[in-house]
Write a protein that binds this DNA or RNA. Structure first.
Lengths: 89, 89, 89, 89
DNA sequence: CACTGGAAAATGCCGC
DNA sequence: GCGGCATTTTCCAGTG
């Protein structure tokens, strides 16, 4: 089999996988829309709701960053004890 | 139980559902990225790849739009006379 | 003259240009609305009309995308070998 | 000439006018983009710039509303004089 | 007059 | 780090 036909097969496979995944992604996006719709039907203001979700996502990102920083500190301490920073003397 | 606490419970539930779904969505988006990465590792030009995917999506969208247009035509013909207006003489 | 007052002058000028252009844009949008209104007054179904315009726009967009894809292909072929990768054996 | 061919001619004309106007609109939108680009090249933060434009638009809308309100009041006073409300005695 | 769907604006993201 | 692309969000007109 030629290189190009191999490549063509690979290409086809890649495209199909991507398209499959994008469909799944869209399905979930639609689900999210539905939930917002349900919220609205229950009298919630979807605009505010979206803000809440956004803020919580930010908070979470911050928290993770802080944990990462903590890990860095702990790692720098050499796996041994302590929480007070070593000033290098 | 008060109305507000009921609402609070509903709100909490809605937020959780949305956040769960957004996580899933993100996971799939990451999968898609992985596939593009794999494609690139196999020597494919991801820019071309993305363009191909985009065009195929457009084709599909267009087909759907045309069907919608047909429905509109048929509806207009069935409805009364419409769409092809008479010139009032 | 200070830097900040120069910047202030520039800023004012930029804002004015943008606002002027946005006014023009709005005027044209209103014109478009008028045309749809006129169409409706002549018995045309504006929904159908809008769909037709949308489809024609899509057609055009698609044509442009395909040209872009062709450019990409040609570029990839010219660049080295790329796009159709060898399978490394 | 038949009604339908008359309608077809009208339709064609309407579509063309709409498409022409949409092109013009797009051209202006592109101009606006250019101005933002120029602003950025001069060191302005386009995000802030957009906010400024938005706020000024809101202000303007408010001012117009207040003028409309004023007109309403004046009209209610019977076209005659005065700015102090009549308490009906 | 609220709701839906579609256009436009804005933001975020990814690759170079 | 920036320009372009995709996504998201907001806005608005049309409709029942």
């Amino acid at each position: 089999m030629t290189d190009t036909s191999v490549a063509a097969g690979q290409l086809r496979s890649l495209i199909e996988r991507i398209e499959r995944l994008e469909e799944e992604k869209k399905a979930i996006a639609d689900d999210i829309k539905d939930v917002y719709g349900e919220a609205k039907a229950n009298g919630f203001d979807t605009k505010v709701l979206r803000q809440v979700v956004r803020i919580r996502k930010q908070d979470q990102a911050e928290r993770q960053e802080q944990e990462a920083l903590l890990d860095l500190y702990l790692g720098a301490l050499g796996g041994a004890a302590a929480s007070a920073p070593d000033d290098g003397v």
